[in-house]
Design a protein around this nucleic acid. Structure first.
Length: 483
RNA sequence: GGCCCUAUCGUCUAGUGGUCUAGGACGUCGGGUUCUCAUCCCGAAAAUCGUGGGUUCGACUCCCACUAGGGUCACCA
């Protein structure tokens, strides 16, 4: 039977309320700074779990000693906390299914690897890396499928005993059955089926005693009672190996959900070269976490009422994996910018200032009530918090009058006179003062921008001058006239 | 290349056989409000629903093929 439509295949087990405890997880590898794609996964997991009294777990998959990065785990927590996608169980929080760091579970994997050997579902492999490389080269040059040649698949007990006795390094490989269809149901794509002859005898336990992803993920997801395995589409093709493992252990297969992967403008997997993959980039650029989450929520999913802007709480209420479509969406910074600007604009002045203080610690040195007065002016003009600097330069830095462009001294004198006459130093009155000069001398607003801020345009000038104050404003005029 | 997934405006998407001469959002362009720039409001252009076959009284919606794009082929995840 072919089930290509998501509509007919979705809603299988686990969808009936109360029937199965919802437990989801993200399983990042501490190999670098957290990836925006990890947050994308976390968002869906988190929303699904929170919307159904489920549990959201973070498991650290640190089984690759070579690629291990020291601070990476903390960076993951930083990112999670920044976005507010707080987990229920993790290495830092503990929980009933710990430890949650795979490097602390080595004995468990080794035990299950042994069980697999005993059952005949796996076997010891003594091939050297060099030999494996040769095999790969050979198959590649013959344009054949590059996979293990099963050299050690049928060693006799004596050969194995001898190799073990002589301390030969060994791995444990999955014994993939021949001539079988391996099928499973992906919630977003329906039934997917692979020919087992094309599935490699994957290494499950490395020669250093660490498991590979494939063993660890299956063992842990089962032991941690993960009900829905949610991961990126790039894992689809290794899922048959996992199915084989579940079957070999006699374990129930969890619901499998392979989410779309975020793409570059050229449709390849989102990468540093073309886009921005690190969470830290977005943070430093001054994006608001809730704006990013809102944007991410729209990747592959849409609000039932067509809403574009909605808070996380609403996403939690509405979200279901069955509504996610499997097309890999292109990450569009332009739309994120719009959304971020929208969120900034909707932020209360006090709150916005607080965010800016976090973003620009140096602002703590400035007068806070002064800064607060800037908020209404800047909030409709910032795509990101970083835009604050350029927007407000004229409040902090005196314009450079040394390069005078030959401005009309008469107009300057006129302006001086007009502004000095302003009784109450408020935007309206200041504007009237400027306006009279404009009418009389046929100059327009940009002239005054240049004069008072050094820029062609910017924040509303009368309001700016009000905040800058009468004295500083007139002082700038003096300097302009002297130049 | 093998295998697997996917296919509606430039981008994110709505669309579950007739309500679609395909709706919304971003972006783009034009206009209005206005003291510059934004915000806000209004409007426009923009998808022959990848192509070709079926099924059906009827297909964006179901089936097949093709094409294109993507993913994956490690003792990395």
């Amino acid at each position: 039977m072919v089930l290509s439509s998501k509509k007919t295949t979705v809603r299988t087990e686990g969808e009936v309320p109360g029937r199965k405890k919802i437990r989801v997880r993200i399983a990042p590898s501490p190999t670098g700074y957290p990836h925006i794609g990890t947050i994308y996964q976390a968002l869906f997991d988190y929303a699904y779990a929170r919307g159904r009294s489920g549990t959201f777990v973070i498991r650290i998959e640190d089984t690759d000693q070579a690629r291990f990065v020291m601070d990476a785990e903390d960076e993951i927590y930083n990112a999670i906390d920044w976005f507010g996608l707080t987990e229920d169980e993790s290495p830092r929080k503990g929980g009933p299914s710990g430890p949650y760091r795979q490097s602390e579970r080595l004995a468990i994997y080794q035990k299950y690897a042994r069980e697999l050997i005993e059952k005949g579902s796996a076997y010891y492999c003594f091939c050297s890396k060099e030999r494996l490389e040769e095999v790969r080269q050979r198959l590649a040059s013959e344009k054949k499928q590059v996979m293990y040649d099963k050299h050690c698949r049928n060693l006799t007990d004596e050969q194995i005993a001898a190799n073990v006795a002589s301390n030969m390094p060994r791995t444990v490989r999955l014994r993939v059955p021949e001539n079988r269809q391996i099928s499973f149901t992906d919630w977003l794509r329906g039934e997917i089926s692979f020919n087992s002859n094309l599935v490699d005898d994957q290494v499950l336990l490395k020669s250093d005693g660490f498991p590979t992803y494939h063993l660890a993920v299956v063992v842990d997801d089962h032991l941690m009672e993960i009900s829905h395995v949610v991961r990126g589409e790039e894992w689809l093709s290794s899922t048959p190996k996992h199915i084989l493992l579940y079957q070999a252990f006699g374990w129930e297969i969890p619901s499998l959900i392979h989410t779309p992967i975020l793409r570059n403008p050229d449709k390849s997997k989102l990468s540093k070269r073309q886009g921005h993959t690190n969470v830290s980039w977005y943070r430093e650029a001054g994006y608001l976490p809730e704006a990013i989450l809102n944007y991410l929520a729209l990747m592959g999913w849409s609000h039932p009422e067509g809403k574009e802007i909605f808070p996380l709480s609403e996403f939690i209420e509405q979200f279901d994996f069955k509504d996610v479509n499997p097309i890999g969406p292109i990450f569009d910074l332009a739309k994120l910018n719009w959304m971020n600007q929208h969120y900034i604009q909707e932020t209360r002045d006090e709150e916005l200032l607080e965010r800016l203080l976090v973003h620009f610690p140096d602002l703590h040195d400035k007068d806070q009530s002064f800064l607060l007065r800037l908020m209404p002016l800047v909030k409709t003009r910032m795509d990101t918090l970083s835009d604050f600097t350029a927007l407000t330069r004229h409040f902090f830095v005196e314009p450079d009058y040394s390069v005078e462009d030959g401005g009309d001294k008469k107009i300057l004198a006129e302006t001086q006179k007009s502004l000095t006459a302003v009784k109450k130093w408020q935007a309206d009155a200041i504007f009237l003062g400027l306006k009279s000069v404009m009418q009389e001398h046929k100059v327009r607003m940009p002239f005054f921008y240049k004069l008072f801020t050094g820029a062609e345009r910017g924040l509303p000038l009368p309001q700016s001058l009000e905040i800058i104050g009468r004295d500083r404003t007139l002082a700038r005029l003096d300097r302009a006239r002297a130049a």
